[in-house]
Amino acid sequence: MRVTVFGGTGAIGRLVVQRLLDDGYQVTALVRTPAKLALTHPRLTVITGQLSDAAAVGEAVAGADAVISALGPSLKRSATGTPLTEGTRIVVEAMEARKVTRFVGLATPSLADPRDKPHWKHRVLPVMAGLLFPNALADLKGMTRAVTDSGLDYTLARITNPTNRPAAGRVRAGFLGHDRVGSAMSRADIAAFLVSQLTDTRYRRAMPAISN
């Protein structure tokens, strides 16, 4: 299977790329700065380009069987604009034009899935994020909507508190108010979950919350 990765130089993205290669996938990564990926492999193709460059995004998506996005917004309070929203729209358009349907990415419990029941995270997290990181929340909302409003076969994993702890090898996944899902999760386990969704059909067109 050929998988295209966006956000491959981030803390989770690098782990996603490595996990894919370890599992035998053919990987294409679109990155702005290849040196940040710090990885070479016979099954890894690195394309240098911006997420805003439709031609580069199209080149990265061409021939893929699936896309994994490890993109996340800037948490700097000085950040402005919604680059991830615009970039994700470009990715979605490129996928639809090339008939690539499977999209796996990240989201936040600040946004509800229709399968959720009322939960404290629905009340608390949007308020906290709106106060501390209003621009990041707006970009996350737009990025998520670009995917969920499309016809793509998506899974968006909602994460709350990613950590740098070693992989625990166990995952809780489900819907708020239904399933026992916590908040903290190692980035290594997040990456493993994203890769697992390439072949797992339980959360198609859904946004499961995940934790350790």
Rank of each mutant, 00 (worst) to 15 (best):
N164H: 13
L131K: 13
A129C: 11
P134T: 08
H119A: 04
N164D: 15
R165P: 01
F133Y: 15
L132S: 12
G142N: 00
P118Y: 01
A136R: 00
V124A: 15
A157Y: 10
L176A: 07
T155E: 03
D116Q: 00
A129W: 12
A112M: 08
A157E: 05
D139N: 09
A136T: 00
P162G: 03
A168Y: 09
P126A: 10
D116V: 00
T148L: 02
L152T: 07
L140P: 06
T160G: 11
L132R: 11
R170W: 14
R158D: 05
T148Y: 03
W120P: 11
L176E: 04
R145D: 11
R158K: 03
K117H: 14
V171W: 13
L131P: 09
N161E: 13
A157N: 06
P126V: 11
R158N: 00
V171R: 15
I159V: 11
R158C: 00
R170M: 13
F133P: 03
F133A: 06
A138E: 14
L137T: 05
P109Q: 02
G142V: 06
P162T: 02
I159H: 07
V124H: 13
H122P: 05
F133K: 09
A129E: 14
P162I: 03
K121H: 13
P166Y: 07
R158F: 02
A138C: 10
F175R: 03
P109S: 05
P118N: 03
A168T: 15
P166W: 03
A112N: 11
S110W: 00
R172T: 12
D153M: 02
S110Q: 01
Y154N: 03
G130L: 08
G169F: 05
I159W: 07
A136K: 05
G151Y: 02
T163A: 04
T144S: 10
P162F: 04
D149Q: 14
V171I: 15
L140N: 14
L125F: 09
D149K: 15
L140Y: 13
P114V: 06
G177A: 02
D153E: 08
G151W: 07
G130D: 08
R145I: 09
R123C: 11
R180K: 15
H178R: 15
P118L: 07
A146T: 06
V171P: 11
R115L: 13
L137V: 05
A138N: 10
D179Q: 06
A168D: 12
I159T: 11
R170H: 14
N164L: 13
A112D: 07
L156N: 07
A112I: 08
G174F: 07
T144M: 09
W120Y: 12
A157M: 08
A129M: 12
H178T: 13
R115P: 07
A167P: 01
P166N: 05
A167H: 02
N164K: 12
G177K: 01
L125A: 15
R145Q: 15
A129Y: 15
H122G: 01
K141H: 14
